[in-house]
Amino acid sequence: MLFAPDTVESLNFVVALGNTTPGSSRSGEDELATVDQLAGLLSRFSYTGRIDHDKAELLSVRDVRTQLRSLWVLDRDEAVGVVNQMLRDARALPFLTRHDQLDWHLHATSPDVPLVVRMRAEMGLAFTDVIRMNEMGRLRVCEADDCDGLVLDLSRNGSKRFCTVRCGNRMNMIAFRERNS
């Protein structure tokens, strides 16, 4: 494994969050348009602490989604400034914790700060690991022609190209048809 489990969890969350946009979601619609959709997304990940379940929080998370999608495609040196700013804005003070069924992992803020602040801090820590390990190349955008889904490549040889099997199969079928026409 390239990264610590909490880093992988955070990066997988960025992918899930980033892939709620119309150009990357399965439905083609914005899948983060309601407070209930945000709650559904959060329930798939191990977010603990304060969650307000209101429109203001939803709008803040949508802003973070935009920021994280932009960060995903930066080169290593460009990403450093963005990540450092995210950590400063969140007033991150990393500490080890263990709760629920999770073993020791990093948190960077108190559980009572707003969700979006915790997101920025935790994603900042995750990107710190990616940058320090010089693995920004593992963060990609789907290579399918009509998809801008985020791809986290944790494969051994770093060859993952598509956000889902569906995109991969579709592109393979297009290539097959082009070869045989």
Rank of each mutant, 00 (worst) to 15 (best):
T97K: 11
R65G: 10
G28W: 02
R156H: 13
A16G: 06
P22V: 02
M1G: 15
N84C: 03
G18A: 13
A126K: 00
G168A: 12
A79Q: 15
Q67Y: 05
L93G: 05
D145K: 13
V141F: 02
V80E: 15
L74H: 11
W104M: 11
N12R: 15
V61G: 01
V35H: 03
R26C: 00
S155E: 11
V61K: 02
L32V: 09
T128R: 10
R118V: 00
A108C: 08
S27A: 04
L11A: 05
D75N: 15
R170M: 12
T109W: 06
E122F: 01
R161S: 13
R166Y: 04
A90G: 13
Y47E: 04
L74E: 11
N19F: 06
D145Q: 14
C147K: 09
T48K: 09
M86N: 04
E135P: 07
R138D: 11
H107N: 00
R161I: 08
L125V: 03
H53D: 12
L96P: 01
E178R: 15
A33N: 08
S155Q: 08
L41F: 01
G18T: 10
L152D: 05
A79T: 15
V117I: 14
D63Q: 12
M173V: 15
A175W: 01
G28I: 02
L106T: 07
D75R: 11
L152F: 15
Q85I: 02
D77W: 09
V117A: 09
P5V: 00
T21R: 00
P111H: 12
S25C: 01
L71F: 11
L68Q: 04
D63L: 07
W72V: 14
A126W: 00
M133C: 06
D148T: 15
G18C: 08
P5K: 09
Q37S: 03
L96I: 07
D52W: 06
P111V: 14
N84S: 06
H107C: 05
G137R: 09
H105T: 07
E57D: 03
L71A: 04
L139E: 13
G81E: 13
R50N: 05
F127G: 14
G168R: 05
P94C: 03
E57Y: 11
Q85S: 09
G40N: 14
C147A: 11
N157E: 12
L17D: 09
A175Y: 02
V151R: 00
E143L: 08
A39G: 01
S25G: 01
A33M: 01
D54C: 09
G149W: 04
T109K: 12
R170E: 08
R76G: 10
L106S: 07
F162H: 14
G168V: 05
M123W: 11
R44Q: 14
T109N: 12
P114Y: 11
R138L: 12
V117D: 05
D54V: 07
F162A: 09
H107P: 00
L17E: 02
R118K: 07
G18K: 13
N157F: 10
A4T: 00
M1D: 14
W72F: 12
R69W: 00
L59F: 06
G158T: 02
Q67N: 08
